[in-house]
Simulated scan of single mutants.
Amino acid sequence: MANDVATDATDDAVTGEPPRRRQRFDSIRNMVLSLAVICAGAFGLVLFNPGDQPEGSTPTVSYEVEATTAARAAPYELLVPEGLPEGWRATSVRYEPLGEFGATWHLGFLDPDDEYVAVRQADGDAGEFVADATRDAEDTGSATAAGGRDWARYEGSKYDALVLAEPDATTVVMGTASFDRLEQFAGALVAAAE
Rank of each mutant, 00 (worst) to 15 (best):
Gly141Leu: 06
Gly141Asn: 06
Gly141Cys: 08
Ser142Lys: 12
Ser142Gly: 15
Ser142Cys: 07
Ser142Val: 14
Ser142Phe: 10
Ala143Gly: 13
Ala143Ser: 14
Ala143Cys: 05
Thr144Met: 03
Thr144Tyr: 01
Thr144Phe: 02
Thr144Lys: 01
Ala145Ser: 15
Ala145His: 10
Ala145Leu: 13
Ala145Met: 11
Ala146Lys: 04
Ala146Arg: 03
Gly147Lys: 02
Gly147Ala: 12
Gly147Cys: 08
Gly148Met: 07
Gly148Asn: 06
Gly148Pro: 09
Arg149Cys: 07
Arg149Asn: 14
Arg149Gly: 06
Arg149Val: 11
Arg149Gln: 15
Asp150Ser: 15
Asp150Gly: 03
Asp150Arg: 08
Asp150His: 07
Trp151Ala: 03
Trp151Arg: 02
Trp151Asp: 00
Trp151Ile: 01
Ala152Leu: 09
Ala152Cys: 04
Ala152Pro: 04
Arg153His: 00
Arg153Ala: 00
Tyr154Lys: 07
Tyr154Thr: 04
Glu155Asn: 05
Glu155Pro: 00
Glu155Trp: 01
Glu155Asp: 11
Glu155Arg: 00
Gly156Pro: 05
Ser157Pro: 06
Ser157His: 06
Ser157Gln: 09
Lys158Gly: 04
Lys158Ala: 13
Tyr159Trp: 06
Tyr159Glu: 02
Asp160Trp: 00
Asp160Tyr: 02
Ala161Val: 03
Ala161Leu: 04
Ala161Tyr: 01
Leu162Phe: 11
Leu162Arg: 06
Leu162Glu: 08
Leu162Ala: 10
Leu162Ser: 09
Leu162His: 09
Leu162Met: 10
Leu162Thr: 10
Val163Asp: 00
Val163Leu: 05
Val163Gln: 01
Leu164Pro: 13
Leu164Ser: 08
Ala165Thr: 15
Ala165Gly: 08
Ala165Ile: 12
Glu166Ser: 13
Glu166Thr: 14
Pro167Arg: 14
Pro167Asp: 15
Pro167Ala: 15
Pro167Lys: 13
Pro167Tyr: 06
Asp168Val: 14
Asp168Tyr: 08
Ala169Ser: 15
Ala169Arg: 15
Ala169Gln: 13
Thr170Gln: 08
Thr170Cys: 11
Thr170Ser: 13
Thr170Ala: 10
Thr170Lys: 06
Thr171Gln: 09
Thr171Gly: 12
Thr171Cys: 12
Val172Thr: 03
Val172Phe: 02
Val172His: 00
Val172Asn: 00
Val172Arg: 02
Val173Leu: 09
Val173Ile: 11
Met174Leu: 15
Met174Gly: 13
Met174Gln: 15
Met174Lys: 09
Gly175Tyr: 03
Gly175Ser: 11
Gly175Trp: 01
Gly175Thr: 07
Gly175Met: 09
Thr176His: 12
Thr176Phe: 07
Thr176Ser: 15
Ala177Asp: 10
Ala177His: 06
Ser178Gly: 13
Ser178His: 08
Phe179Thr: 04
Asp180Asn: 03
Asp180Gly: 03
Asp180Val: 04
Arg181Leu: 03
Arg181Gln: 12
Arg181Phe: 01
Arg181His: 07
Arg181Ser: 04
Arg181Gly: 00
Arg181Asp: 02
Arg181Tyr: 01
Arg181Val: 01
Leu182Ala: 02
Glu183Ala: 15
Glu183Thr: 13
Glu183His: 03
Gln184Thr: 14
Gln184Ala: 13
Gln184Met: 08
Gln184Ser: 11
Gln184Asp: 08
Phe185Met: 14
Phe185Arg: 04
Ala186Cys: 13
Ala186Asp: 09
Ala186Arg: 07
Ala186Trp: 12
Gly187Ala: 10
Gly187Lys: 11
Gly187Val: 12
Gly187His: 09
Ala188Trp: 10
Leu189Asp: 06
